[in-house]
Design a protein around this nucleic acid. Sequence first.
DNA 1: TCAATCTTGTTAACATGTTAATCAATAATT
DNA 2: AATTATTGATTAACATGTTAACAAGATTGA
Lengths: 155, 155
Amino acid sequence: MKSTNGTNHHADIPPDTRKSLPIALLRAREAVMAGFRPVLARHGITEQQWRVLRVLSEIGKPLDASNLAFRASILPPSLTRILKMLSERQMISVIRDRGDGRRVLVQISKGGEDLIREVAPESREIYADLEQRYGEDKVRLLLEMLDDLTTKLSR
Amino acid sequence: MKSTNGTNHHADIPPDTRKSLPIALLRAREAVMAGFRPVLARHGITEQQWRVLRVLSEIGKPLDASNLAFRASILPPSLTRILKMLSERQMISVIRDRGDGRRVLVQISKGGEDLIREVAPESREIYADLEQRYGEDKVRLLLEMLDDLTTKLSR
DNA sequence: TCAATCTTGTTAACATGTTAATCAATAATT
DNA sequence: AATTATTGATTAACATGTTAACAAGATTGA
């Protein structure tokens, strides 16, 4: 039994924060977003709103809220609030499903598409800089490992 | 120029969410925390409060708020609120620095240490299960890559 | 058919994230 | 010493995360 940092006299209970996967993921995400957030902020949009718009743009057709929430990795209660915002700002259109009165169908509108076209160049620039700093192949490998981890833990 | 998902007719603007590092990091973190959160919830504590307690326990001596915020990866405004909670629940003690009246010194107290001892076994169990599912060596490699990424982007 | 159940989305309540403004204490400058 | 600038922490304001409860529409089964 050995202590890894010299200051924790509880031995290995718990592992120190440098070896914590949740914290490492949080910090990495924070470091990545530090480059992106200013770009989005300049366009008056949050990271989550951006994710919603991107998913809708990729899909290209009306999507119900549950599916949208899943694809954008946003919880339903948050999505409800975000849809209200984006709808007021004319970036999306929200209508009730004719066949199933519970469902809400969301579609990107012209305002949203315009915003995406505005932000995309800057976004790609940031991402290119990231790949250049960290290594294009390492980014690919990291993505693969993260996806693998997510898959293996979701069962 | 090729489309990667068949539905995005904006070509490569922007890369689809499956290849997005921020989202991959978010999902991975979410998958990891899904196992961990119930444990903390059973003990009536949030993930961030747990991080604060762990850092204080590892350090083992009074720490000023700025340092604590940095080590726990929590922003100062959030930390202020968290310290108030933990202090009311007798998990930490907060005093002003004698030498520098601006600083606040935080130290874990008996209640906090007790909680850590309670949660630690379950925590290790979850982490062990994670390592077993994903692979011990892959966890190490992933931690290393994340740390590398964070470092390279923070300059 | 109709009551029980399930599903979808929303609301509620509280905690944290995020940025900007503020306040008090210290340090720096003249 | 008095003024100014900087620093550390807090407060404010708004957006999201998180869990639980809820409401309304759809399904099921007796």
